[in-house]
Design a protein around this nucleic acid. Structure first.
Lengths: 111, 111
DNA sequence: GACTTATGACGTAAACATACGTCAAATGTA
DNA sequence: TACATTTGACGTATGTTTACGTCATAAGTC
């Protein structure tokens, strides 16, 4: 199968990539948990979520690969936390898309 | 394989489902196109996007199944348009998630 | 009625995501 | 040094998404 993704605009691709990260409740739960805790948290996340450590590790890896979270080794543990720089970028793109759409809504005549 | 999705909160599931809809550039492009046009548009979308009619139809179906767009038959054509009620719901959930996260950021001490 | 056009339905192949068990490495503790 | 703990890496089975070709249907046109 040939991917056609590169035929879309960079912005569309970037927004889609961020949306993909949010497209599984486990990853949303991870981000919510990391945001809630005012200190950084290692594999405690495993105890919080109804998934095996292995599966969770995979989701963490995905978030880390996309730079939405950071993970730093702290002795025996790993301290994970949200990368706010990337998070803000996601917020901006998402807001832009939604606002642009809703703006257009006002001019709409049918349906 | 057993799905563990039902073990997460309804809000997490709902947000993830919306995010999944936005997780492909084609579907973002469709929504952008529908929002841009101030009249409703049928299969003209096919001419706008670098995908076969069949593939596009599949993406349209997905958006329609989730109620993010509506499609009404108009003679020979189908008039598609954004379902703003669902769109607003998505906006609200997404905003809630992002704002709640960023609010927590201010209290954060590490990383 | 025959023809064209627009569209959804169905089938299918390739790619990707999800979920988890097991293993190995690295670090702190007895 | 021996041992437990935390964690990423690897393998793998199953499920879902993407992409498209082909067929069927339904509405307008000749």
């Amino acid at each position: 199968m040939i991917s056609k993704i590169e035929n879309f605009t960079p912005k569309q691709q970037e927004l889609a990539a961020f949306a993909k990260l949010l497209s599984h409740p486990a990853r949303i739960a991870i981000l919510e948990f990391l945001a809630k805790e005012n200190r950084c948290i290692s594999g405690d996340i495993t105890n919080e979520l109804p998934l095996s450590r292995t599966t969770l590790s995979q989701h963490l890896q995905e978030l880390k690969n996309s730079d939405l979270i950071k993970g730093e080794i702290e002795g025996k543990n790993v301290c994970y936390c949200i990368n706010w720089k990337t998070f803000s970028k996601m917020e901006k793109l998402m807001k832009q898309f939604i606002d642009k759409s809703i703006e257009a809504k006002l001019k709409q005549s049918c349906c």
